[in-house]
Design a protein around this nucleic acid. Structure first.
Lengths: 360, 360
DNA sequence: TTTGGCTATGAAAACGTTTTCAGCCACCTC
DNA sequence: GAGGTGGCTGAAAACGTTTTCATAGCCAAA
């Protein structure tokens, strides 16, 4: 088998125009152009006055040597890295995918780089990730959906630009979130409007801020409709917990005819679980999710759910961070709208006697 | 509206234990501990001999001042950044999501950071992205699916660790790819085994390396079966192109009974397009995709397609890069296996006279 | 011709680390 | 007591930039 090793590299092919030494520094350029490093820096950055003829000499030297500035050294000298860190719970999945895309788009607009890391729910990882960014980035976008967050931000010095994404509000850092409450309200009211009288909420993890907000909104809406009953089944945002919830649901008395699930994954699990037990959605039970994952519209029936412009969320987070970095005033919290997407998994409740109700 | 500005930050809350000045450097720690910066460095990095009692003093000072090393300066001095750059066509979508996850997992294992950027098909962006990494990373994973790639790697000095992900092979850099040929072969042979005699390939973009490999494999297999005919319809990997291909397909003579689509997106579009024209899949036309996107198993019918462990691909790419960085020998090319996933979108061809064939 | 004020440049000091090099000290061996 | 020997430590030189500060030259004004 042909092998590659760091020492056995061949001659230049489509590499640098004339790549003499791997490491050509600003001093080499200066020497080659017959000027001082300071002047080269001035030409490269367009700062300070330099005679046109000298500028040409410098550019010529840059091209001739194939010089590319060393961003690390540059950052050190300028005290500015043009990089921001993204510390997220996960990187995969539709939500983060969209989020990342929005952030990348914004980053390009601001000409900054993105340093990503994910911590998979481990607080120790968050701390490590945050510490590792010291001296490497100009700011941090942190997403920490857990309720508890004491000491997470220990290693970041006060005054360092940090934007919190989702989750609870924070004394020291601005926050960008989706309107969980509004979305949940819309979902629940949709079910009530359809005529449902017994609703159940399939909750998310109790320590998850989004889950808490959605649950609160659920009961808040029910408080306004005395003739509607609200129950809840504990879940944890996984498809499996939704599947299992189907069993619990069928044992509830009075019988719920509609479910507001904390997110799409558990809603999908629930639909599958109900179907496995012979219950039809939405004829016998209506189901609403939350997130509007791409999958939602491809399901049978297509899932009614609450959507949001997650890409926009990413953009806004980066933009907020940049404003913070630049010292511009910034709202303490920015809440992005969510909207109900009515599809096929919701319908009016079954009329007793027409065979829609499920067995005794 | 309450606003935040960089200058109006409050007192410390859950921030640093005792955050005196925002910027505490190794010199401050040294002074506080009554030693030299060199000794602090030695203690922090566990290098060189330091008396235990002094070590304690240093650690105490570190804690007292809430010192966190400045990675930027560290990188400069060590000539090592513990960061690698990911230069990808996109960041969103199932494929990249999985890829990123694998890379992140591997990165954590190697204790390195990930600097991401995407270029959306623009060669100028690639060059900018690569140049921006100079002095910021120890290596680069570059994915450039286009056939043409002259000069893309101009600004990276020869000998700098680069791993190519997918795409064509390269003289100077090792490569990690998925087995497009094997997957395509398996897909086509599956259709032939089912009894199909007229196959059509819905191609990807002509300048895309993966598309080219899959197309080549399609015709290579057909070459071995003289009694099977192969046609092709040009596409571009988008769902829309698949949808439109349905029309073209129905006009072909002889009538194809099976389609091997270049990827899942176009396969899905095709299925939708066929259905819109009253053609049933797989009863009248079988369809195979490529990629096994998560959606595939939720479609009706679930899509038969070619899958691969994309997360593993990401891991392998990072691992290869690390080996390259460390000067370990490394295969010039690593090809990861793909596998056929048979689901519901393929079936034997309709038997004439049984109503399966579509109208004249 | 001096003075003053530009413009264009270079020398050198940052930036915050790591690492080399040399030196100090205590201990051991004759 | 002289001469190693080895363990700790500090001074200082990197690393590759940017930026401040000083100065040299030049032209206009006095």
């Amino acid at each position: 088998m042909k092998t590659f090793s760091a020492t056995s590299r061949g001659e230049s092919g489509d590499e640098a125009p004339s790549p003499p030494g791997s490491h050509v520094s600003i001093k080499d350029v200066a020497r080659h152009a017959g000027v001082s490093p300071a002047t080269v820096s001035r030409v490269l950055n367009g700062t300070g006055p330099v005679r046109p003829v000298v500028q040409e000499r410098v550019w010529a030297a840059v091209k001739a040597l194939g010089y590319v500035p060393h961003s690390g050294a540059r950052s050190l000298a300028r005290r500015k890295t043009d990089t921001v860190a993204l510390v997220l719970p996960e990187l995969s999945g539709d939500f983060y995918s969209q989020l990342l895309r929005g952030m990348e788009l914004a980053a390009r607009q601001f000409s900054i780089q993105l340093l990503v890391s994910s911590f998979h729910g481990d607080p120790a990882e968050v701390k490590r990730a945050l510490a590792a960014t010291k001296g490497r980035v100009d700011g941090i976008v942190l997403m920490w959906p857990e309720m508890e967050k004491d000491g997470i931000l220990q290693s970041v010095p006060p005054g360092f630009p940090v934007v919190l994404l989702g989750g609870t509000e924070h004394l020291h850092h601005p926050q960008v979130t989706l309107d969980n409450s509004g979305g949940a309200r819309a979902a629940v009211e949709h079910l009530i409007q359809l005529g449902h009288k017994v609703l159940v909420h399939l909750t998310g993890p109790t320590h998850n801020w989004d889950a808490v907000e959605r649950r609160q909104a659920f009961f808040a809406v029910l408080g306004q409709y005395p003739d509607v009953q609200g129950l809840e089944i504990p879940g944890d945002f996984t498809e499996e917990s939704g599947y299992l919830a189907a069993t619990t649901l069928l044992e509830l008395r009075p019988r719920p005819t509609a479910v507001f699930a904390g997110n799409d994954a558990s809603a999908i699990g629930l639909v599958l679980g109900l179907r496995a037990r012979g219950i039809q959605v939405p004829r016998q039970v209506s189901v609403v999710g939350f997130d509007d994952v791409p999958l939602a519209r491809f399901l049978t029936p297509p899932l009614t759910t609450v959507g949001a412009d997650v890409q926009e969320l990413g953009k806004v987070a980066i933009t907020a961070l940049m404003r913070l970095r630049d010292g511009s005033p910034l709202p303490r919290a920015t809440v992005l709208p969510t909207h109900l997407v009515v599809r096929g998994s919701t319908a009016p409740p079954p009329v007793p006697g027409e065979g829609g109700a499920y067995g005794s």
